[in-house]
């Protein structure tokens, strides 16, 4: 059974069809890029998968469970994590606290555990701190562990976002333009981290507009245009696909 199934997803906003009958399947451990002109519905598709937006029509099935009617927090706990195109972090909490909030195992987050602190809860927290610090070292933010989120540079925020994706230990990771707006060296780091996540067994779907990067990183590319899935295949097929050439280069639209 495929890992993630999107079946005939449609969504419209005030008369505009933003997702037009999108069907798609992802296999476990795939690393897939999604491209498409600006406003083609890529972020909306992420919003639908992560539960922030209810599709008008269609089904989303993750690991055999129908998730399209679940609230975002339930979907997250089933093992889907996402980043936001406009970065969302906890600005007035420390970098380490941001990481701990992303941690997958958090029995201690119950009110009961706060009032009656058991040894097990302490152990879990220590364990989470240890792992968080490892991931922070890995993305190169260890020194920033005590800084507030708001004191990070743009690039550091993008890196923290990825470190949080590591910490979430989610099975499916949706990244919305993870490298947009960062300096080349940070970009290289981010790419390296995405590859590492994928090697660790995570399924990743990422939105990207740097075609050179997409061609290098992904073994499969999905193309969205006006809410329609117009192509899905190996990078070599995609660059020669007539519809894609039309959507992208023919009409000279800006993309992503």
């Amino acid at each position: 059974m495929p890992f993630l199934i999107l079946e005939n997803l449609s969504k419209h906003f005030d008369g505009n069809l933003v997702l037009d009958n999108v069907s798609l399947q992802l296999k476990e451990r795939e690393l897939v890029a999604m491209i498409g002109p600006n406003g083609s519905g890529k972020t909306t598709l992420f919003n639908a998968i992560s539960g922030f937006l209810k599709p008008d029509q269609g089904k989303i099935i993750f690991k055999g469970i129908e998730i399209n009617n679940l609230p975002p927090n339930k979907i997250a706990r089933l093992g889907i994590t996402r980043s936001f195109q406009r970065i969302r972090l906890f600005h007035q909490l420390s970098v380490l606290d941001n990481m701990l909030l992303a941690a997958r195992y958090n029995e201690g987050e119950k009110l009961f555990s706060a009032l009656f602190r058991t040894r097990l809860i302490h152990k879990e927290e220590e364990e989470n701190i240890k792992k968080s610090l490892e991931y922070l070292s890995f993305v190169g933010l260890f020194d920033k562990k005590d800084s507030l989120g708001e004191n990070l540079s743009f690039g550091q925020r993008k890196l923290l976002e990825l470190a949080m994706a590591f910490a979430s230990d989610a099975d499916l990771i949706l990244l919305d333009e993870p490298t947009s707006g960062v300096f080349p060296e940070t970009k290289a780091k981010i790419i390296q981290n995405i590859q590492k996540l994928n090697e660790d067994g995570k399924t990743i779907l990422f939105i990207e507009h740097d075609m050179e990067l997409v061609m290098r990183l992904a073994k499969r590319i999905i193309v969205l245009d006006h809410g329609k899935l117009i192509a899905d295949g190996h990078p070599d097929e995609i660059v020669n696909n007539e519809h894609v050439l039309d959507a992208y280069f023919g009409k000279r639209k800006s993309y992503a």
Partner: peptide, 19 residues
Amino acid sequence: PFGRVVQSIRDDELAAEAL
């Protein structure tokens, strides 16, 4: 950890939901 969640909602409710 519960208090951390409370404060995360103050900072960004949507991001907390996503986690």
